[in-house]
């Protein structure tokens, strides 16, 4: 196997006496979907916060092999640098859109970095120079492309906060895609989606990773999503990794069943979902 895109080594995060993540190591690869699962409070979101610069980990290293910028230590970057320099982009467990702005504006804001440079830090933009106009048209084209892809183009001018919840989740993913990520971190993207929407999400995730080679790190409770799309699953419990492997391995892992899946294995009903199981 190739070198991983993202390598998490011995990551720990402590809040006072509480250890939210304990000595976690994990690899994330290009063109693959890696899922992090675990019961509530297992430290999944904390892991995302450590990866994306919102928390400074207590110890450990997070190395990203960026195709153009070389090896980046994510734990040393500020949250905005994680997105702008390392191109690691995340979504949030409870959707965080810019609620009063339109869907299209949300997606244009996501391309701030590029546009700001094209506008020569506002000067060229102020006078409407052609270079900036071109960049803006391109940004709109990118946004329209993402919206079309997520079937949101009809709602481009809608105020984001007024949309139904499932649609807001899609807008958030579309917005994250506008940053041009090399690693997309999705925090419970299927929460609050109905079965049809979640099947569409499966298809989207698979096409992103399969066709475009995007690395995806996924936190999810919905087993129909996790089991169908993941290439690799990491199971957390109380901040520790208790198991790791393919969905099939996880399904039969005694520790995982005990800690997480319980008696009722929800993932065993693929017929209900239209998303094709992976591999």
């Amino acid at each position: 196997m190739n070198a991983p895109l993202l390598r998490i080594e011995n990551l720990s995060m402590r809040f006072g006496g509480l250890t939210a993540i304990d000595d976690l190591s994990l690899d994330v690869h290009d063109a693959r979907i890696t899922a992090v699962i675990g019961p509530n409070g297992a430290g999944k979101t904390t892991l995302f916060n450590c990866l994306t610069g919102f928390y400074r980990p207590s110890s450990g290293r997070v190395s990203l092999a960026h195709p153009r910028r070389g090896l980046l230590q994510l734990e040393e970057l500020d949250s905005h640098q994680v997105a702008s320099r390392a191109q690691v982009v995340r979504t949030f467990q409870n959707v965080r859109l810019f609620p009063k702005m339109t869907v299209l504006e949300n997606l244009i804001v996501a391309q701030h970095q590029r546009l700001q440079q094209a506008s020569c830090f506002t000067l060229a933009g102020l006078f409407g120079l052609p270079a900036y106009r071109r960049a803006e048209a391109q940004a709109i084209a990118v946004a329209v492309d993402r919206l079309t892809r997520l079937k949101l183009i009809d709602r481009a001018d809608a105020v984001a906060g007024d949309l139904p919840y499932g649609m807001q989740r899609r807008v958030e993913i579309a917005r994250a895609l506008c940053v041009d990520p090399i690693l997309l971190c999705l925090d419970e993207p299927a929460a609050g989606l109905n079965p049809r929407e979640s099947a569409e999400l499966n298809a989207l995730l698979q096409s992103l990773s399969g066709e475009e080679g995007l690395a995806i790190l996924l936190i999810e409770h919905d087993m129909s999503v996790v089991m169908n799309v993941s290439d690799h699953i990491c199971v957390l419990n109380y901040g520790c990794k208790i198991a790791e492997g393919t969905p099939e391995q996880m399904r039969s892992d005694a520790k995982v069943i005990k800690a997480y899946l319980g008696e009722d294995d929800e993932g065993e009903q693929p017929g209900e979902f239209s998303g094709a199981p992976s591999q």
């Binding site: 994306t52 997105a83 965080r96 970095q113 917005r175 994250a176």
Partner: peptide, 11 residues
Amino acid sequence: EDEIACQALGI
């Protein structure tokens, strides 16, 4: 609207 979302988008 949302400072944290801005950071996550590289602003």
